[in-house]
Design a protein around this nucleic acid. Structure first.
Length: 728
RNA sequence: GGGCAGUUAGCUCAGUGGUAGAGCGGUUCGUUUACACCGAAUUGGUCGGGGGUUCAAAUCCCUCACUGCCCACCA
């Protein structure tokens, strides 16, 4: 038994035990184990990612679940990995290329560029994995997966081929969300609406059939008027009814365009007249379809105007053109007014610029197994916690549009489609190119990243692993990716395994700063978890965060909570140190036959209550309650009350009383260490060893391999009456 | 425009029918040999407003206000 230092210094201890666990293969899951299986798949962080507090919360919860399951006798698989994160990763590498070599990806060409991305990935990618290790995560690292591993990639493409075969995937020219910076289409989920301060321009178009008379129109986007192919009014609008079917002059390029009637127009808004630009607005596009209007695309992919907009606008950025168009209207005497106006504009989630609705040729998916996925969550076959997310899920799933799955990127899973060179309408869909490969051209586009992550729960496993560990148990993730990921995994699970991919989903809250703002890089309000770990220890940050993490409620983060976690670890350390000073402790103290003081009986009764309470809280995923209960019991009941009271007996001359007090301490401490282990794995492991409790472990001498504690059963030992008496 | 959360001590938050809680902060003590990353004591709230149900409401119901988030093709 070694001497314990006065203050707990987590760094060396944490490193030592993490290495020991890994060397002993403690995290390795054995599909052949006779024990029942329990599994979690990690929400794969972006390969470009750095550990955030959100990751800390999320992964600590997963680690708690995994470690407790191990102690409860399950064979545990916590499967880790990373996501290739198409746009994010490609952007990082492109930026580096531009900065260091002043080149674009097109300068390199597809193959050379992809080589660079792989190089980057090998060198800088996956930093987050080593950061998760610092946190103490008990993932089976021998099974680490990447969404672009060879086998995984093949599965992704095979899924495409399969869904195509089922008639669920089609290619079509549709209105999509286009990001003018990333130069790719995005799914609806990747667009974020933001209120923007802008201007509502009131302009007037002259009536063709009634020269000198004008129709007043309100718009926020005058730069698209060159693409107008109609104006629309409500069919019942008395003001304009007589004009339906007539024409107005689009001022530039000057053109006669019809006045059409459409139910979509709100007579109350603006002047009740809408300029219809079918190529640059989703609603306008639909109006265009209904009235067979011409689609006039006046924008380039990068958001500049093209020559169809007129030579004076060609090449001009859309926002510059907005002002220029307004100025030209004013010059022509057609601008009636400019009013400050606030409206919602869709932004690209990644590039943070307004997206452009754009008509383009893309691949779409009609979601599979929708009904079953809906039913599974409604019926509780898959349980959501907190339950309120069920309605969010339902609402989305009952209103989904087809998923635009193609991306105009290079980094990702290339769509397994070939077009015949002499006739592009002839296509081949399959994992391999046709035999006469030279006559075919493969689709340039790659698949949306989420088209690969929706297979994560089962494609990360081989046959034997799936037999043992699939469906997985708990999924721990943020509610922000309920549509992106959770819902799609459920659909893929049913479609491809015929089973649910997981039984329980626990949605964590979002971590905000002390002012309630979202953590973000630009605000600089996101503390670096690694610095916190260095300062307070991984156990400190784990315990501190979980203690204030209520069920799915957002969390305001203050470094104080981590400090408290550290203090708690220190207190634990010193309580063990105090016990050690009184002589060797017994791994399995026998309390029967010992003269138990009323303090002892009271404490043991409270310990039994604690264990019951903790088990109950686990059943409901109330992690903050578990942490708080352990904290209160240990600090108030054990340290402040029991140990102080027992000091009399410990230093007294009554040997039996002394032995009894120490035995009670051992009984409490070894259970407490086990109860705390999922939350604070390192320090409990260290103390388990120093106090000599390893005899209670199974196989390997770790607390990690000990049993989840059973109650002492104090009522049975001394009788209900004695317990009651002690507690009064 | 819909939907969902939240509003409890100076601060951050627990508490879902039965005499208001924790941590931090403040104040006052304490070098008693586990711990100052500590201990003892103490301060502090008409539980967002209004109405209702009940013997009893922070807790259930209604309503209002404010804040946040999600969904939504009003230009």
């Amino acid at each position: 038994m070694s001497e314990i230092s006065k203050a707990y210094e987590p760094q060396a201890v944490e490193e030592k035990w993490y290495a020991a666990w890994q060397n002993e293969g403690c995290f390795t899951a054995d599909p052949a184990s006779p024990k029942p299986g329990y599994s979690i798949v990690i929400p794969p962080p972006n390969v470009t990612g750095m550990l955030t507090l959100g990751h800390v919360l999320n992964n600590t919860i997963q680690d708690v679940l995994a470690r407790r399951a191990r102690m409860k006798g399950f064979e545990v698989l916590w499967l880790p990995g990373t996501d290739h994160a198409g746009i994010a990763t490609q952007t990082v590498v492109e930026r580096k290329l531009r900065k260091e070599e002043k080149k674009t990806r097109r300068d390199l060409g597809r193959e050379a560029f992809l080589e660079r991305v792989w190089e980057w990935k090998e060198k800088h990618g996956g930093i987050i994995i080593s950061q998760l290790k610092k946190l103490g995560c008990s993932c089976d690292w021998s099974r680490e997966r990447f969404t672009m591993d060879e086998g995984y990639s093949r599965a992704v493409q095979a899924t495409f081929v399969d869904l195509y075969g089922k008639g669920l995937i089609y290619r079509g020219k549709r209105m999509v969300n286009w990001c003018p910076v990333s130069l790719t289409a995005l799914s609806d989920e990747e667009v974020i609406m933001k209120p923007q301060k802008g201007v509502l321009y009131r302009m007037r178009y002259e009536l063709v059939e009634r020269p000198g008379e004008y129709l007043e129109i309100a718009t926020t986007r005058p730069e698209t008027l060159m693409g107008d192919t109609a104006v629309a009014v409500h069919p019942d609008d008395e003001r304009y009814k007589h004009l339906i079917g007539q024409h107005v002059w689009r001022p530039f390029p000057r053109l006669q365009i019809p006045i059409v009637a459409d139910e979509h127009i709100d007579p109350q808004f603006g002047t009740g007249v809408l300029k219809v630009t079918p190529a640059h607005d989703k609603a306008d596009f639909e109006i265009g379809q209904r009235h067979h209007l011409e689609i006039l695309d006046v924008l380039n992919p990068d958001g500049t105007l093209n020559e169809l907009a007129g030579s004076e606008f060609a090449g001009m950025d859309r926002f510059v053109a907005r002002k220029a168009a307004a100025a030209k209207l004013a010059e022509l005497g057609l601008l009636v007014a400019e009013e400050p106006y606030q409206n919602n504009v869709g932004f690209s989630e990644r590039a943070d610029v307004p997206i452009e609705p754009r008509l383009s040729l893309q691949w779409f998916l009609k979601y599979p197994s929708v009904e079953q996925s809906l039913e599974a969550v409604k019926s509780g076959e898959i349980r959501f916690r907190p339950e309120r997310w069920v309605s969010t899920y339902e609402h989305w799933l009952t209103n989904i549009q087809d998923w635009c799955i193609s991306r105009q990127l290079w980094w990702g899973h290339r769509i397994p489609v070939w077009y015949r060179k002499d006739d592009e309408s002839v296509i081949h869909v399959g994992l391999e190119a046709p035999a006469d490969e030279e006559n075919w051209r493969q689709e340039e586009d790659v698949l949306d990243t989420w088209f690969s992550s929706w297979l994560w729960p089962f494609e990360t496993m081989d046959e034997a692993t799936r037999a043992k560990f699939y469906p997985t148990g708990d999924l721990v993730t943020g509610p922000d990716i309920i549509f992106f990921w959770v819902a799609r995994m459920i659909m893929a699970g049913y479609e491809y395994t015929g089973r649910k991919p997981f039984s329980d989903v626990f949605f964590t809250g979002l971590i905000r700063d002390i002012q309630g703002r979202k953590m973000s890089k630009s605000l600089g309000n996101s503390p670096d978890p690694l610095e916190l770990i260095a300062k307070y220890g991984a156990d400190g940050i784990r315990f501190g965060l979980l203690r204030i993490a209520p069920q799915g409620q957002d969390i305001r983060f203050d470094e104080k909570v981590v400090e408290e976690g550290r203090n708690f670890a220190n207190k634990l350390w010193n309580a063990a140190r105090f016990r050690q000073m009184q002589g060797p402790s017994a791994p399995d103290a026998d309390l029967s036959g010992l003269p138990l003081s009323i303090y002892s009986i009271d404490l043991l009764a409270k310990l039994d209550e604690l264990i019951a309470k903790v088990n109950g809280a686990y059943a409901e995923y109330r992690f903050n309650e578990i942490a708080q209960s352990l904290y209160d019991f240990f600090w108030s009941e054990y340290c402040d009350w029991y140990v102080e009271a027992a000091k009399t007996e410990i230093s007294g001359s009554d040997e039996a009383a002394r032995a009894s007090a120490l035995a009670v301490m051992d009984t409490v401490l070894n259970r407490l260490l086990r109860l705390l282990h999922p939350f604070m794995p390192h320090i409990t492991e260290e103390l388990w060893e120093t106090l000599g409790f390893s005899a209670r472990s199974h196989g390997k001498p770790f607390v990690l391999y000990s049993d989840w504690p059973e109650p002492v059963g104090i009522a049975a030992l001394v009788g209900e009456a004695a317990v009651k008496a002690a507690q009064e």
